[in-house]
């Protein structure tokens, strides 16, 4: 299902393309200076191949960032693997070869840390906020979180076991609203899918998901979402075969140039 997002760059979203082009231009301009930085002596050269495990919600942004990183550091090659954050940690725990982990919440990164998988301290590089997504024609006429809790309204959220569900629970608590969802999905992509297909009247998803879904859904601001801002940490992994390049990617992803790309996708500052 994660692949669906890549097919969403339709002509229907004209405002985004220039914004992205601009963001990429900024990245290239700012990192161009970085390329001239002489490589450290010895085996610390930044020209290896690394594999980055990143949360599914980072798919578009990190695909772009990986390209920019490869251009900024010629000779490097970045492979990307996207999945739910806990899946990624499970994969790494079970021995999947990875050099960098970018997760969608601090708790999952904490698990990776507890398991001794990290090479250093994780760095927060972005934040994300929940928003109500409704089908483009908003059949249930929803304007607030309270509307989404109304009788007969089909609202879908993430299950509390996954990060977006834990955030949703905090938002509900902050707003004093009990949503009574018709479904508690295992991933935010599944929530969004139920909304884009029109099965559900509303779904609590991230701002970035609403942005990526284009014209299929409309986003409705939820003021109480400020109570549950999710931070995204990134860290190099202990088992990396190329620690220098892995650390360079961590610095790059948390640096100012990456901010532009992430900001264009809807991510907030960490």
């Amino acid at each position: 299902m994660a692949n669906r997002r890549s097919s969403r760059h339709r002509p229907g979203t004209p405002a985004r393309a220039p914004a992205r082009a601009l963001a990429l231009a900024v990245v290239l301009a700012t990192t161009a200076c970085g390329t001239s930085t002489p490589d450290d002596a010895g085996g610390d050269t930044i020209d290896g191949s690394i594999t980055v495990f990143a949360a599914a919600s980072l798919k578009d942004s990190f695909t772009e960032l990986a390209g920019a990183f490869e251009q900024a550091y010629p000779g490097t090659e970045v492979s990307l693997n996207f999945a739910g954050s806990s899946d990624l940690v499970t994969q790494i725990t079970e021995g999947a070869p990875a050099d960098v982990l970018a997760s969608a919440d601090a708790a999952t990164m904490g698990k990776a840390g507890d398991a001794g998988l990290l090479a250093g301290e994780p760095v927060d590089f972005a934040s994300n906020t929940l928003q109500l997504a409704v089908p483009a024609d908003n059949p249930a006429g929803i304007t607030s979180l309270a509307d989404a809790a109304g009788p007969g309204v089909k609202t879908v959220v993430c299950a509390v076991q996954v990060p977006c569900g834990a955030a949703a629970a905090r938002v509900e608590q902050a707003a004093g609203v009990d949503l009574m969802p018709v479904s508690e999905e295992s991933s935010v992509t599944d929530v969004l899918g139920k909304v884009t297909s029109g099965e559900a009247d509303a779904g609590l998803v991230y701002v970035t998901d609403v942005r990526a879904a284009g014209d299929a859904v409309r986003g409705i601001e939820v003021p109480e979402a400020a109570a549950a801002v999710t931070t995204y940490p990134v860290a190099a992994l202990a088992d990396s075969a190329d620690p220098a390049t892995a650390q360079a990617f961590v610095d790059f992803a948390s640096g100012p140039s990456a901010r532009a790309v992430l900001g264009a996708a809807g991510f907030g500052a960490p």
């Binding site: 479904s183 508690e184 999905e185 599944d190």
Partner: peptide, 9 residues
């Protein structure tokens, strides 16, 4: 089931 029916205890 995941795609069509959703997931509620």
């Amino acid at each position: 089931t995941l795609t069509f029916a959703g997931s509620l205890q």
